[in-house]
Design a protein around this nucleic acid. Structure first.
Lengths: 155, 155
DNA sequence: TTCGTTGCAAAAGGTTTGCATACCA
DNA sequence: TGGTATGCAAACCTTTTGCAACGAA
């Protein structure tokens, strides 16, 4: 399919949603997509740190602004961890998704949540509420991090 | 039904979970329970403000500490609003609950979420994840706050 | 050239913590 | 009397914002 030649290729081909194309946005986007493939959700802070470590420093504000724009455009899912930090995950498609996230390593798995969607729709109908939106987050410990994975974490 | 004679009565009878009994904790508890009955979720900040307005000032730190202890003991549900603020709701029982919250007035409705519980349990089984926990939050606009409030509540 | 974007740093907003004092048990 | 809870204020963290300079179209 597409031969990626660098940040620009990714940005221009896959996410033509942002206003003006800049080197910084391409960098953030690239790191964001890589993070999605590797571990799922990431925070703006960690993305910022990662970029700096990768010798591609981008201002923290810019990371926030890019990620927020992405979320606004529906190209990213946003959740909050127990600490209150916002975590972003790149979303290739544009449909609503739910995830199961490992609390140990951060890896996330997209879920087939038809049952939840139906339930939520039913609640919306019977409650009299309008503009009902739902947030569903599952967390747990993935097989790789589990107690029987040669793990050393007591629990 | 018990005849409540004041904060102490509530605290000692219903929530013997905190370490030492103090006037402040009783006050926070009373306000917290009242808030639960009236509107559901409240933030520590608003509870603090409310107490001050009710001529029963309690330090903000104390409100936070009491609410956190309650949540820790399983006597309160905690969620985060879109702003990142933590919202608490008193929970008389000790079972796991889910709510539908009005984004306009903050009123919340406890939901019968058996369908979600089952789904979550199924996901836990098929995913290989262990210690799976779930967060489900529904938000919307209640009939009273809806566009046709005062008229017909769409169903 | 134009005007959106960047980056720094300070501000904002909520939550936690340190420490001396007050008070329950 | 002993030890815990309180309260103030400062610390912390993440996120947002103001503004001058930069650079993509």
């Amino acid at each position: 399919m597409t031969a990626r030649t660098g940040p620009q290729a990714i940005a221009t081909q896959e996410v033509p949603l942002l206003g003006r194309f800049t080197q910084q946005r391409a960098l953030v986007l690239e790191a964001f997509i890589e993070a999605e493939e590797a571990e799922g959700f990431v925070s703006a802070q960690s993305l910022h740190t990662r970029l700096a470590a990768a010798d591609a420093p981008v201002g923290l504000s810019t990371v926030y602004r890019t990620l927020s724009a992405l979320a606004e455009a529906g190209r990213a899912d946003v959740i909050r961890d127990m600490h209150g930090e916002r975590l972003f995950r790149y979303r290739p498609g544009s449909d609503h998704r739910h995830y199961l996230i490992c609390t140990q390593c951060g890896v996330s798995v997209a879920l087939d949540a038809v049952a939840v969607e139906k339930w939520a729709a039913g609640v919306a109908r019977t409650s009299g509420f309008t503009a009902v939106q739902h947030t569903v987050e599952l967390t747990g410990i993935c097989p790789d991090c589990g107690p029987s994975a040669g793990g050393s974490s007591g629990g």
